[in-house]
Nucleic acid binder design. Structure first.
Lengths: 156, 156
DNA sequence: ACTGAATTGTACCCTTGGCTACATTAGTCT
DNA sequence: AGACTAATGTAGCCAAGGGTACAATTCAGT
């Protein structure tokens, strides 16, 4: 109709073209999305290990709300990524890398939940939302959440 | 090793089994993840319409940071879901439902960004994080964000 | 030691969302 | 009008993450 305007359009406030930066943002979101599931698995495995001393495939599947073959496939991927080890018909174990990841993910999760609770979000919603949002919060955002909680505690 | 403890384990604070509720949370997160992309497309199409008067497949692809066949496939899915219409070699248009969704998504996005900025998150991080997190924030959380912004404005 | 149930593993299918390669149509310019 | 370019569409490939159905192994209880 009007021809290609996209090459010449600029952002009103910055005088910079908007496409590349937005494409980068979406790209990062895609990357985060693809690691989100792995982070959830690793966190869950760490939880099960802490609670039961072991992480079994069926329990993982139950907790994830997924059939066991699906869980097994995801675990296979975790093995390939070096986050987890397992021998046939034996439990699942986190590698060094897996434990480090689990620790970071759990800290992030706790911070996220605490932050939402502090804002007045009901507990169940806070847990549910954190489960999704935590994977997309950058260090900058997590730091801001931390500062907020710090201020709250200081000002009582 | 120690037999099946999963059926009997309970949450320390509530005395309720933890599996079902956690499975539900993960299920909801999965659902949100699957609609996230559609929401991004619809929002982007609305933006392009507002800026250029039309939404073309190539521009959508560029902005999403994706090749055009990928964008076309997603658009096909949007058509199937009744959010969008298009005729061969013509532009993409939002249906009623698509416009409504776009409006909700944009409002949510703006709220999210504004909230993060108010917390002191740098602009680029706020935009990037909002792109991911917005899809997982429940009404309760969005309401809490709104209250926070309201308090800020009132207390100057 | 055996049997039956539970757990784990495997095979195969589906959809989504990426990609490349190629075909077709529309738009523009001489 | 014709030719070139850009945009759109189509075909086919891949990996991830969901599922069912069935096979194999382990575990528990007699």
């Amino acid at each position: 109709m009007t021809g290609n305007l996209s090459e010449t359009r600029v952002d009103a406030t910055t005088d910079m073209p908007e496409e590349p930066t937005q494409a980068l943002r979406f790209g990062r979101a895609r990357t985060a999305r693809s690691s989100a599931l792995q982070e959830d698995y690793v966190e869950l495995i760490a939880d099960l290990m802490a609670a039961h001393g072991e992480a079994r495939a069926t329990d993982i599947a139950k907790r994830m709300g997924v059939t066991h073959p699906t869980a097994l496939k995801s675990i296979t991927r975790l093995k390939r990524e070096g986050l987890v080890t397992s021998r046939p018909y034996r439990g699942i174990f986190l590698t060094e890398a897996g434990q480090e990841l689990a620790q970071r993910v759990r800290a992030r999760h706790r911070l996220m939940v605490e932050f939402l609770l502090a804002l007045g979000v009901p507990a169940e919603a806070a847990e549910a939302d954190a489960e999704g949002m935590e994977h997309y919060a950058s260090e900058a955002t997590l730091a801001a959440f931390g500062r907020f909680l710090g201020r709250l505690r200081r000002d009582i």
